[in-house]
Amino acid sequence: MKAIGFRTSLPISDTNSFIEFETEKPAPKGRDLLVKVAAVSVNPVDYKIRQNSAKDQVLDTPKVIGWDAVGTVEAVGEEVSLFKVGDEVYYAGDLNRAGSNAEYQLVDERIVGSKPKKLSIEEAAAMPLTALTAWEILFDRIRINEKDKGKTILIIGGAGGVGSIAIQIAKKVAGLKVITTASRPETEGWCREQGADYVVNHKDLLNEMREAGFPQVDFILDFVDANQYWDIMVELIKPQGHIASITGSAVPVALDKLKSKSVSFSWELMYTRSIFQTEDMIEQHHILNEVARLLDDGVLNSTLKATLSGFSADNLKKAHQQLENNTTIGKVVITF
């Protein structure tokens, strides 16, 4: 089968930043599905791993990345019970395994959902990783529930992949009042399309929030940089509120600044369940199926923004370049 990967970490402009190669089609065992991939999307985690996972070394076997896919089940392991051959599926995959940038991929059925029936493969491929991340950060980390309806949430970084679907889920599923950040007319417009009640400029966030009538909010989601916005988030969060972030931190986060307000803080990593094979790993199967239902019912909309036709190293380079420029709105999908 054809796959695309890299042997060493190179700038995306380098000819060998991605290489096409042939490798053996894998065989499923246990709870694995063998999926014939039809489309993939690209996320910031892709280029971060490409830039950092093979520094100062040359891998014997190219590393295949990619953590969003739509495809058809071609074969199943002996313990599979959730899917059968011929089923259309979508999923984000597992950091510990070969990614979706290949014609065929093995994936554990517990982190796979049924593809939304009314969406095209392109529209569906845009959704798994970001929808799982947004759903988990809202309902598993902050644990928003019925009593929180009408409360305020600030989403820092609303126009990106995770921000785009987080706006929708926070507004249309959780029933929150959504404020999000954007700084360009096109990103502001996109955030409003996703359902944001208010859009503020992150370049002067404190004053923008005050002028919008929100000197403090109940919840804050950070999708940009925890430390860059830390002091601002500390000031904006209400006493007994909750801040959650997906961005990681190169230096320690000053959690002591939250003590006087008794504010909670959570990290969210969508891969935690699959990395550690947690007891509730199958929750991602349930989340993806619920998101598929909401997409089919028109409650949620795909965040697809751009499509590249053809599974090639050149198209992967184009997609990575676009994300590295930090101007991407919504999601970029590559069809096979």
Results as ranks from 00 to 15, higher is better:
Glu290Ser: 04
Leu258Trp: 10
Val200Ala: 12
Val217Asp: 02
Ile282Asp: 09
Gln240Cys: 11
His285Phe: 14
Ala292Met: 06
Gln216Asn: 04
Ile275Pro: 00
Lys257Phe: 06
Lys238Asp: 08
Ile232Gln: 15
Gln277Leu: 05
Asp197Lys: 12
Phe276Ala: 06
Phe214Ile: 05
Arg210Trp: 01
Gly241Phe: 10
Glu211Val: 14
Asn207Trp: 03
Asp225Gly: 05
Lys238Gly: 02
Ile243Ala: 14
Asp297Met: 10
Leu236Glu: 04
Asn301Gln: 13
Leu288Glu: 05
Asp225Glu: 05
Gln240Trp: 14
Ser274Tyr: 02
Val253Arg: 12
Pro252Asp: 07
Ser260Trp: 09
Asp296Pro: 01
Pro215Thr: 07
Ala244Ser: 15
Leu300His: 00
Asn301Gly: 03
His202Ala: 15
Ser262Tyr: 11
Lys259Phe: 15
Val253Tyr: 12
Ile232Met: 14
Ala250Tyr: 06
Val299Thr: 15
Val253His: 09
Ile275His: 04
Ala250Met: 12
Asp296Gly: 02
Ser266Met: 06
Gln194Ile: 07
Ala244Trp: 13
Gln277Thr: 04
Asn227Arg: 14
Ser302Met: 10
Ser266Gln: 04
Val224Phe: 14
Ala292His: 05
Val251Ala: 14
Thr247Val: 15
Ala196Thr: 08
Tyr198Ile: 15
Arg210Cys: 00
Ser260Gln: 06
Leu205Ser: 06
Ala292Asp: 04
Trp230Leu: 07
Leu205Met: 15
Gln216Arg: 10
Leu269Met: 09
Leu206Phe: 03
Thr278Asn: 10
Leu258Gly: 00
Asn207Pro: 03
Lys257Tyr: 05
Gly195Trp: 09
Glu279Phe: 08
Leu269Ser: 02
Gln277Lys: 10
Ser249Ala: 13
Leu206Asn: 09
Met270Glu: 10
Ser266Gly: 05
Glu211Phe: 11
Ser264Asn: 11
Gln194His: 03
Val253Phe: 14
Gln284Leu: 01
Met281Phe: 08
Leu206Glu: 13
Leu295Ile: 04
Ile287Pro: 00
Val234Lys: 00
Ile220Val: 15
Gln284Trp: 01
Ala196Arg: 08
Leu269Lys: 00
Thr278Leu: 13
Asn207Phe: 09
Leu206Met: 08
Arg273Ile: 00
Met233Lys: 01
Tyr198Asp: 03
Gln194Met: 15
Lys257Thr: 10
Val299Tyr: 08
